[in-house]
C-alpha cells in the first residue's frame, strides 16, 4: 500500500533531481562560439533539415548570460582564448561545454605558435566532437550525450 496506490493515476511521484534534470535536458539554451567552418555545420544542425528543435535546443542566444550550453566550434587563438574564458565565466550555473571539431579539441592541423592546442586546457569540456568539420549528425549525438549528462546532474 504505497502512496501511488492511493493517488492512483492523478499524480506521478518522482525525485526532484530526476524531474529537474528531465526539464533541463529538453530545454538547453546553446551559446554558439563559432570561429571557423565548424560554425557553419552548427548552423546547418540548427536549420530545418537537421532541426535541433527536436531536442529542445534550438533557442540560440548570443548572450552567455542566457545560456547553459557553450558550443566551441572552431579555432581559438591565444588572443581569442581570454574572450572565450570570459564568455564561459559569464554563463550561469549549471553549464555544460561541447568542444566541436578537431581545432577546438586539440588544435587540429594548426599546430602553430598562435593556436590554443585544445580549449580544455582553460575551460572544462563535457563532450568532444571529432571531425573536420563534424557533420550535423555528430553534433546531434553530442547533444544527446550532453542530455544524458544533464539528466544525471544534481538539481541542488
Amino acid at each position: 500500500m504505497g502512496l501511488e496506490d492511493q493517488l492512483q493515476e492523478n499524480v506521478m511521484t518522482t525525485k526532484v533531481d530526476a524531474m529537474v534534470g528531465w526539464a533541463r535536458k529538453n530545454s538547453l539554451w546553446p551559446m554558439p562560439f563559432g570561429t571557423a567552418c565548424c560554425a557553419i555545420e552548427l548552423m546547418a544542425t540548427l536549420a530545418s533539415r537537421f532541426d535541433l528543435a527536436r531536442f529542445g535546443a534550438e533557442a540560440i542566444r548570443f548572450s552567455p548570460r542566457q545560456s547553459d550550453l557553450l558550443v566551441v566550434s572552431g579555432r581559438v587563438s591565444i588572443k581569442m582564448m581570454p574572450v572565450l574564458k570570459k564568455i564561459y565565466d559569464q554563463m550561469p550555473e549549471p553549464k555544460w561545454v561541447i568542444s566541436m571539431g578537431a581545432c577546438a579539441s586539440s588544435g587540429g592541423v594548426f599546430n602553430t605558435y598562435t593556436l590554443v592546442q585544445g580549449v580544455d586546457q582553460y575551460i572544462p569540456v563535457d563532450v568532444y566532437i571529432p571531425g573536420c568539420p563534424p557533420r550535423p549528425e555528430n553534433v546531434i549525438q553530442a547533444l544527446m550525450k550532453i542530455q544524458e549528462k544533464v539528466a544525471q546532474a544534481k538539481a541542488n
Binding site: I78, M81, N111, T112, Y113, L115, V116, Q117, Q121
Partner: peptide
C-alpha cells in the same frame, strides 16, 4: 628564425 610552434607563447599566455 622563429620556430613554427613558437617559443611557448601558446601555453604560457596570461589572461
Amino acid at each position: 628564425d622563429y620556430p613554427l610552434h613558437g617559443k611557448g607563447e601558446r601555453d604560457n599566455f596570461v589572461f
